[in-house]
Design a protein around this nucleic acid. Structure first.
Length: 583
RNA sequence: GGGGGCGUAGAACAGUCUGGAGUGUUCGCUGGCCUGUCAAGCCAGAGGUCGCGGGUUCAAAUCCCGUCGUCCCCGCCA
């Protein structure tokens, strides 16, 4: 059908007789001569024809799929197009075949206009023809290939695990699949292959990886889909440093092929969870800009300012950020205070640093000269800088300032890639009076005795990978000792019989010489999205779902036949009548 | 579960606050002219259930109520 692709047509091709096939990107008809930009998956070549020689050329429309045969020639002097890689040459068409005509398009196929996303999803096969989307697909493929090559070279085995598994009520909502043989019983689709990969470790697989589809039935965001892909890996006789080194190798390999412009120093920097929360108010800091949170509690230790004194007296903290040179109008201040309240803080104190004068602030009159001076010094304040202070419980103050920081800060270089590890997460946190996991229940504590006696102070051997403020993935050293595993369930408040019923089969496996092991999972869609500089993983997923889980191309999910349900022993409960979608 | 934005011709939008004839812009589409364009150009033309339903009004794209869809965010995502 073709002898060359568009990208193979270069200056050296002049004189060659070639056959190309692709789509009519654009057509410029001048009566006596017509130019067609022929696009394929590699690029664009201008083909030229004299319409009187080709009756068909009159009929060519956008996105017609055509085949052309002719001679590559140099373009006339002055008619070159330096913006095209094949812009020095063109094809003089001798034969033209319309392989497949196209109806009028629902939206233009070009990078510079963005149709509404719903429409793009409805005609995804056209949307993906746009060069930018095609490059996203190509980048994803290249990333996949790079991951596999890198891990294969490191002696990993790619092992598949089941996608129909037992439901575990912890964590995200499961997607359920009914069993025909056992009416009323359901499989779940895996939220991750966690237990199976640990079983593979027990099974003697030394290094496991899998490009794995995972399913979590929670509400969607720009970076979350119902189904997504993970680079899942695990190694026996591994400790934390082995995992981080392996993940670094894989992720850096992907980064270097997708973003060769960026030099990323390894090993990647590490931050403890405590440091991350203290300096950035989040466990996934974007370190492309500074504006770090400063603790000011000592500055105000003996303050006469009642609001601060009360909070410090009850174990709270005073912290602040230097938001830099921003305009601080009354309206801006009110908006920031409203945001801080919405994020849980009791209030927000703002100050504008002035030269040779105390800062301008509604609360300046309550603070001593010494306090103001050391505050400005601690914050590195220069005239015009806006300082924002929050006095509250430590966690609230940190999180509020962390969000303000993201709200007000912009990356020094938006194209840069700032990877970092966040390590030493707590094992548990208290939520609504209950102890819950920060990670998952198979994560090993650094100290079992401490975990049992003071669980909320216990540090987990777990770690997250963060890129530009996006959580790319997480992992941990796993528990390989059945006794420790039981104790974790105890602390969780899961009764022994229940733990036995739900996880007994897994704990049993740990009793047969389970090797110490550790692993990680990287959110593949997110990784490619950030490296491609797109804000939604939907740009990276060929056929994504909308926020309500719909797939507009095929109109899934959809009702099924009554017979299908009957066979599965499923009766659908009556629900409020759903109006037929309109518009 | 909650907050916010959006829905007007095939596409992207303006018009909605302050009701007055489906008014407009760019692109696309149809026809014509055109031999060096490359987001071609020029001329002419077609194309509308203003998401859907109800209400207020002499009159609704515009105001009110409901509803559907979609996007962003909070919650949620061990």
């Amino acid at each position: 059908m073709r002898s060359h692709t568009a990208s193979q047509i270069v200056l050296q091709s002049v004189g060659e007789r070639v056959t190309l096939a692709g789509w009519v990107d654009r057509r410029r008809h001048h009566g006596g001569v017509a130019f067609v930009d022929l696009r394929d998956h590699t690029g664009v070549v201008q083909v030229v024809m004299e319409p009187q020689r080709f009756e068909e050329s009159v009929l060519l429309r956008r996105e017609y799929c055509i085949q052309v045969h002719g001679v590559i020639r140099r373009r006339p002097e002055g008619a070159e197009n330096p913006a095209m890689s094949s812009g020095m040459v063109e094809m003089d068409v001798e034969e033209l075949t319309i392989l497949s005509p196209s109806e009028e398009l629902p939206f233009p196929i070009e990078d510079r206009t963005d149709a509404e996303e719903l429409l793009r999803l409805e005609y995804r096969y056209l949307d993906l023809r746009r060069p930018r989307m095609a490059r996203n697909l190509a980048a994803r493929s290249l990333a996949l290939r790079t991951v596999r090559r890198t891990l294969e070279d490191m002696a990993f085995w790619e092992v598949e695990t089941p996608t129909l598994i037992r439901s575990t009520p912890e964590g995200a909502r499961d997607l359920l699949v009914p069993s025909r043989h056992n009416p009323g019983a359901f499989y779940a689709l895996p939220q991750s292959p966690q237990i199976y990969k640990q079983l593979l470790m027990v099974a003697g697989v030394d290094r496991y990886y899998q490009m794995c589809r995972c399913y979590r039935d929670e509400d969607f965001r720009a970076d979350r889909q119902l189904e997504f892909t993970q680079i899942d890996l695990e190694g026996a006789f591994w400790d934390q440093d082995d995992v981080l080194a392996a993940v670094e190798k894989v992720v850096m390999a992907v980064a270097s092929v997708l973003r060769p412009d960026q030099e990323i120093p390894v090993p990647l920097p590490r931050l403890t969870y405590g440091e991350a929360m203290a300096r950035y108010g989040t466990d996934k800091p974007d370190v492309r800009f500074g504006m770090q949170i400063q603790d000011l509690s000592d500055v105000f230790a003996g303050t006469g300012f009642r609001a601060f004194a009360n909070i410090l007296g009850s174990g709270g903290v005073v912290r602040g950020i230097n938001a830099g040179q921003i305009q601080m109008s009354r309206a801006r201040a009110d908006a920031l205070i409203a945001k801080a309240r919405q994020w849980g803080a009791g209030g927000l104190v703002w100050m504008v640093v002035r030269p040779q004068a105390p800062p301008r602030s509604p609360v300046a009159k309550f603070l001593s000269q010494v306090e103001l001076d050391s505050l400005v010094e601690r914050m590195g304040g220069t005239p015009g800088d806006v300082l924002l202070l929050v006095a509250d419980r430590e966690k609230t103050a940190a999180q509020t300032l962390g969000r303000l920081r993201l709200d007000l800060g912009t990356p020094d270089d938006p194209d840069s890639l700032e990877f970092l590890w966040v390590v030493d997460f707590p094992m548990f946190e208290e939520k609504d009076g209950e102890i819950t996991f920060l990670h998952h229940p198979f994560t090993s504590p650094t100290d079992v005795e401490q975990m049992v006696s003071r669980p909320l102070e216990s540090v987990a051997r777990s770690y997250d990978l963060v890129l530009n403020g996006v959580e790319l993935g997480s992992g941990s050293v796993r528990i390989h000792d059945p006794d420790t595993q039981r104790r974790v369930f105890e602390i969780m408040g899961i009764p022994e019989e229940e733990a036995e019923e739900r996880f007994g089969w897994f704990i049993k496996a740990l009793r047969y010489g389970a090797p110490p092991h550790a692993g990680f999972a990287v959110g593949f869609d997110r990784l490619v999205a950030v490296l491609r500089g797109v804000s939604s993983i939907r740009e990276i997923i060929p056929f994504p779902k909308t926020q309500t889980g719909a797939e507009p191309l095929s109109s899934s999910p959809a009702a099924v036949d009554r017979e299908q349900l009957a066979e599965l022993g499923i009766a659908v409960a009556p629900r409020r009548a759903r109006a037929k979608p309109s518009g």
